[in-house]
Design a protein around this nucleic acid. Structure first.
Length: 566
RNA sequence: CGGCGUGUAGCGCAGUUUGGUAGCGCGCUUGUUUCGGGAGCAAGAGGUCGUGGGUUCAAAUCCCGCCACGCCGACCA
């Protein structure tokens, strides 16, 4: 490829709104161009990286028996009615009508399509197990796209679906895919990837793992045990909490005036947040009669995923002033709200001298004892794990980190096969619904994650396995006919030898060429100038290390074969 | 969906408070001298100032509506 013809430009300034390194460098180096909120064009270099990522995934998916298919982007409403998701999924699912007023959806995931593909053709247990996968565009109307390619609305995804006759078979295959995923990510050059237990969310099913790239810009929160290496998404993470001290106090009402928040109450009464019980109120979506009040220690935060599972419905934070509650003075003593479901977090267990609202304007109680004054029937786990809690497996102190979810795997069970009526005959004559697993990898997220992890102050540093081109051919003083002739000859020669070459055929200065090659992150730079031509040498610079090599021209190809390995 | 912010040339920005002929840097074109780390000089091209309405002799600037983009939150296979 001649850079003079390459679509896209290298910029000195990043778009003002870019914050993450991947967003800044991918924009500056001409890899991506934003079209709308969360919607990007992959310019030629990015598309080349994307294809290499896809090829790695294809190889590995084929190696575990995958059959590549291509599901439609647009599906009829009826297909999604079968699974019940046409109505159960919110606004992320784009619904629209065609010219004959027929309801359609844009594919955001393809369980329905996968089962549909098997319907009618899969009849016997002998056809199981099998796995089908596709690499295709998904559209999800995210409430909020952000950070360049990290969180977008339209994106390329590899999604795979496996069908099994027994749970054991699914579990074995799930383990295979688990290992395959690590292989895939490592081949892409990603280093800091861990698997974490996760919530299955709208997919349904019980067992699910996410593959997270650990990075500060990640928007997922992960709880990791540094000792036994167990890790979970904070949505499902549990912990052993340090015990409260069981010291009893004397209950009394105190005037706290305008103090409402934890901080205000703390400074007003000279307490610490872990000596306060706070209330968080929720409405149950779709059921106006139900309200939920969660009490937890002041230094803890509600884990809404856990609470949602307990409540058994979608919840949303709500002011309950209508029910007679005084915001900022809600307390668990003498609380009287008729239809409220009250949950006590385990962080309150053993807390025998704490502050809580007095359920009237301007007053709190202090010295409240949970066992003497409140007497909850039970304590439940509805708070987020905090750094310093103990690992439930080994007891070590847990760490809380951020990650980008680049892949996930689910044991779906029979939810879809059952609802959509896919069944097979078993040896004993009975029929069963095949048990499904599904397995996703976000291509664009991988690309951005690789960029995020592989860059320096000068720009991107692509791992060899996914670099858009391996070689940046960089002739200096192209106005010199000798250099020009030699560079053109070398470009043709290397290309003919199947090296991937980006040829800087511009008449610009050496500085501009060096800077661009570094910004674009091409792993190997070959410099050619009059002097090295005269003594039959070429100069090679390695992007990652900055190392320089001088090689005889006749041994260049051999040297490049040694350098370009992955 | 809520809070806040921003929209002026391909990119980054000033100008808006206090209304008066549309500006700067980078990039681009031409010429020239340079040229192994984002060159110098000279001459150019490029904008209905997001959009619709209003106020005014006069609006990028003031007022109202809308749209888009971003940040924080809510949400998220």
């Amino acid at each position: 490829m001649r850079i003079s013809k390459l679509l896209g430009e290298r910029l000195k300034d990043a778009p003002a709104n870019a914050t993450s390194k991947s967003h800044i460098f991918l924009s500056r180096a001409g890899y991506i161009k934003q079209v709308a909120n969360g919607i990007y064009t992959f310019m030629p270099p990015a598309e080349r990286v994307s294809k290499k990522i896809q090829d790695i995934i294809r190889e590995e998916m084929d190696a575990v028996g995958g059959q590549e298919v291509l599901f439609p982007v647009v599906m009829p409403r009826e297909l999604w009615d079968l699974s019940g998701r046409y109505s159960s999924i919110g606004q992320e699912l784009v619904r629209f009508k065609d010219r004959s007023n027929h309801d359609l959806v844009l594919g955001m995931t393809h369980e329905e399509a996968a089962v549909h593909a098997a319907l009618g053709t899969i009849k016997s247990y002998e056809q199981l197990p099998f796995m089908i996968y596709q690499i295709q565009t998904k559209f999800r109307d995210e409430a909020r796209a952000r950070a360049g390619l990290i969180r977008v609305r339209e994106f390329l995804m590899k999604d795979a679906y496996s069908f099994h006759a027994t749970q054991q078979d699914l579990e074995e295959y799930y383990k295979t895919l688990y290992d395959t995923y690590f292989k895939i990510f490592h081949r892409m050059g990603l280093k800091n990837v861990i698997a974490v237990h996760s919530d299955s969310g709208m997919m349904g099913g019980k067992v699910a793992d996410e593959f997270q790239l650990l990075t500060d810009i990640g928007e997922d929160t992960i709880v990791i045990c540094p000792e036994c290496d167990s890790a979970s998404n904070i949505d499902v993470a549990t912990s052993e909490m340090p015990e409260n001290d069981h010291i009893f106090g004397v209950k009394q009402e105190v005037f706290t005036g305008e103090a409402k928040t934890i901080d205000e109450v703390c400074s007003n009464l000279n307490k610490r947040p872990n000596q306060i019980a706070k209330a968080v109120c929720y409405a149950v979506i779709g059921d106006e009669n139900r309200v939920v009040i969660a009490f937890l220690r002041g230094d803890r935060e509600v884990n809404e995923a856990k609470l949602k599972n307990l409540v058994g419905g979608e919840i949303a934070i709500k002011d309950l002033q209508d029910s007679g509650l005084v915001k900022g003075n809600i307390g668990c003593v003498d609380l009287n709200v008729p239809n409220a479901e009250i949950y006590f977090d385990r962080s309150l267990e053993g807390l025998e001298s704490f502050v809580t609202g007095a359920n009237k304007e301007g007053y709190h109680y202090q010295g409240v004892s949970i066992t003497r004054d409140v007497k909850p029937e039970k304590f439940v786990d509805i708070s987020k794990v905090a750094e310093g809690d103990r690992c439930p497996v080994c007891g070590a102190k847990l760490l809380v980190k951020n990650g980008i979810e680049i892949g996930n795997i689910f044991q779906l069970g029979t939810r879809y096969t059952q609802k959509m009526g896919l069944s097979v005959h078993m040896p004993d004559g009975s029929s069963i619904n095949p048990i499904m697993g599904c397995y996703g990898i976000g291509i664009g997220r991988c690309l951005a994650s690789i960029a995020e992890e592989n860059c320096d102050e000068k720009g991107l540093v692509w791992p060899m396995s996914v670099a858009p081109w391996h070689i940046y051919l960089c002739p200096i003083r192209l106005d010199n006919p000798v250099v020009k002739e030699k560079a053109e000859w070398l470009y043709k020669k290397l290309t003919a030898e199947n090296f991937e070459v980006l040829y800087d055929d511009r008449l610009t200065s050496a500085g501009v060429k060096f800077t661009d090659s570094e910004l674009m992150g091409i792993p190997v730079r070959i410099e050619k100038k009059k002097k090295t031509i005269e003594n039959g040498q070429v100069e090679i610079t390695i992007r990652q290390t900055g190392e320089k090599l001088f090689v005889k021209e006749e041994s260049l190809s051999k040297k490049l074969d040694e350098i370009i390995v992955y």
